[in-house]
Design a protein around this nucleic acid. Structure first.
Lengths: 196, 196
DNA sequence: GGCATTCTTGACGAGGGTGTCAAAGACGGA
DNA sequence: TCCGTCTTTGACACCCTCGTCAAGAATGCC
């Protein structure tokens, strides 16, 4: 059949995301994406223009999906539990054998060369949004009096984002072992422990 | 002049390391390395065989140089100060405008596809050596009684390695800003704070 | 029914990367 | 002095990747 768009866009981006994730963004070719999505190379060019656009769409899907879950997990008013919940979302994602190891966003971030290109801007935006959500949480916690004295909202937010990135790196470095990731998340949560 | 090796091997690996670091390991071509080192492509193949061998040599140089500095910084018997010193080495490296942003080892790690290749094994080895050095420090600290009660040597070691990786990721994500990195290091050190 | 629109498909050219090789030339030992 | 060894150098073949394009075909509007 020819003439009408045959593929499901949502499924295409989903497949593309997993391909970038598994093979590495820089190493993924249009041929890889065509094979993974079942859509011909020419059709991909017709629909998206170039690979960068496809990568950005994949990043957006990736970021919004897991940021939504992670930020939702910040429900507990006690920072120790909230941070543990936030990091647990990342641990669960890595523990799922259906997912490639590591983290697409982190991987793309480390491949960046200059701050000028569209991908770099998108990565920074997504990191910043997560950081902002965490900062808002810690700000509220401080107002509630549940944030330990020496801890600051902005620095704490950056610390938690960095920890989740570190977990992803260690997950890849240790060939997918999940106990390493759990050790890190557990240690990081302890920073927010308040003696009662 | 032809017939005798003209280049300084140590300088060549140093230049190659910085090229892999700045351009990304996967994106660095033999032509890039030839330009950066001043050694012709053919000579590089003659001396090293292929790009992977050159990358591994670069990784070894990178890892041993900065691991030596970081582990040396674990001098203080008080974990809070020792961890701060360890992380400060990484902060200093990133703050040095003479160095490319981020961390070569972390970047290569995130690019890995399978655990089977030689590069993956080398990356894991280097991470593990750092982890082991930190674990030994924390083991000694526990014996000394300077490690806070809930903290365990192995988990703490993993946490500190992960934090240093997270710092590198955030450094790239934020376009080289150093205050972000400092926030993370300061927060992480607080985990080891002991009220006196 | 006819026609414009839109998507698919396969092929094409350009460019670039890898690894190899033969020729040329310098050094050192016999 | 002569020969074997080793390095440099530039060229070469092969393969892959990108992005484009013209032709073909189905749909839906008029």
């Amino acid at each position: 059949m020819v003439g009408i768009r045959k593929f499901d866009e949502a499924k295409l981006i989903e497949d593309a995301m997993r391909t970038f994730w598994a093979r590495g963004a820089g190493a993924t070719t249009m041929a890889d994406l065509a094979a993974a999505t079942g859509v011909q190379r020419g059709s991909l060019y017709n629909a998206y223009g170039d690979r960068e656009t496809l990568l950005i769409a994949a990043l957006d899907l990736y970021a919004t999906r897991w940021r939504a879950q992670a930020v939702e997990a910040l429900a507990d008013p006690e920072p120790e539990a909230a941070v543990a919940g936030f990091l647990q979302v990342h641990t669960d994602r890595m523990a799922d054998p259906g997912n490639p190891p590591g983290c697409l966003m982190t991987q793309v971030c480390m491949e960046l060369t200059g701050p000028s290109d569209a991908v770099a801007k998108r990565v920074e935006m997504h990191f910043r949004q997560t950081e902002d959500a965490l900062e808002a949480y810690f700000e509220a916690a401080r107002a509630r009096g549940t944030l330990r004295a020496p801890l600051q909202p902005r620095a704490s937010a950056r610390f938690v984002v960095a920890t989740s990135r570190g977990m992803a790196v260690m997950h890849k470095a240790h060939g997918g072992r999940i106990d390493v990731v759990e050790d890190i998340a557990a240690s990081a949560s302890l920073l927010f422990h308040r003696p009662r």
